[in-house]
Design a protein around this nucleic acid. Sequence first.
DNA 1: GCTATCGATTGACAAACACCAATTCAATTG
DNA 2: CAATTGAATTGGTGTTTGTCAATCGATAGC
Lengths: 117, 117
Amino acid sequence: MSIDLQLAPKQRRAPGKPCCEPVVYPDTERGEAERMALVAKALGDPIRLQLVDVLRKHAGKVCVCELTPLFDVEQPTVSHHLKVLRDAGVVDSERRGIWAYYYVVPNGLKELSTWLR
Amino acid sequence: MSIDLQLAPKQRRAPGKPCCEPVVYPDTERGEAERMALVAKALGDPIRLQLVDVLRKHAGKVCVCELTPLFDVEQPTVSHHLKVLRDAGVVDSERRGIWAYYYVVPNGLKELSTWLR
DNA sequence: GCTATCGATTGACAAACACCAATTCAATTG
DNA sequence: CAATTGAATTGGTGTTTGTCAATCGATAGC
């Protein structure tokens, strides 16, 4: 993160001149912002946020068959939301026979959480 | 938040029976999830996340004309992103003459931040 | 009043998204 | 093997999103 920026006191400049000097863009931190935005985006849906909430409350692993009936959407939709969360590194899953168990990845939310203070 | 959920140990049930008892869905917390998801969604874009980052680092108010050159998009796009953040209650703005100054709303990120622990 | 500038708004477009019905895959039981 | 079940995938649809060019409203200086 950290974008450098000098906060010049604003005042009318000569016509033709731009209002402020162009500030160099440090894309060093672009990757960090993109990672955190990906996680935030994954949490940016009420169902996904509640899925994560349930998984976090139960420190163990939770069967998809227990998650599905919690929401007013069909099973493929829940499966889709879980995939989004998995792709964002927030949760992961494990198969046990016929069932799939999901759990929160230990540090999946850490970077964003820390940034948010 | 808090979705109640009994974690029954999984085992094969008789054919024809569903895998688990239907769990009542407590939509009491639906609003909370929707509010937080809205904020998370607003942070779910790298540019918006960096906009918030810049505004947070400078505790004061920052002119749009200083924010725009920081990103590789045109002015209307930055304006659009700022509107998304304002609609989510994350930032607010104030006009001073020709300029618009943006700042982070004190508790705009609090609920999500707390939930993320 | 005329002109230039900051920033918001509008309209358009392609890409991404949420959702479902239908299907497929994997594993388990009879 | 055949039937059944949990969960992922596919294909489709309607909606939302990110972006820009063009325009507009407001303010300030000439």
